[in-house]
């Protein structure tokens, strides 16, 4: 299990955050996702084999962009 922080741009309302959260949770390797519109960040708990590409794609699918991926 590893913790990942995503900096996300383009979110401007609470339903945006809930969209990103929903989209991220569809990735099987993502165990927990909590996205905050106030911080412009998503906090994830993922399995070790998670691919960055998949995360970026999921955020894009909901209509937003990943600015930065930070590992704890």
């Amino acid at each position: 299990m590893k913790k990942i922080k995503l900096e996300i741009s383009g979110m401007h309302c609470a339903s945006c955050a809930s969209n990103v959260e929903r989209s991220l949770k569809k990735i099987p390797a993502v165990k927990k996702a909590s996205v905050s519109v106030l911080l412009n960040k998503g906090m994830l708990e993922c399995e070790e084999n998670i691919s960055e590409e998949e995360l970026v794609k999921a955020v894009k699918r909901a209509g937003y962009n990943v600015r930065k991926i930070i590992y704890d």
Partner: peptide, 27 residues
């Protein structure tokens, strides 16, 4: 206006984080 950025992700191993090229306006 949000411009499309590239899919490419740079690996910055020291800082254990990846910078994603952002739309130029914000950069």
């Amino acid at each position: 206006m949000i411009k499309k950025h590239e899919h490419h992700i740079e690996h910055v191993h020291d800082a254990s984080q990846s910078e994603i090229p952002e739309n130029p306006e914000y950069a």
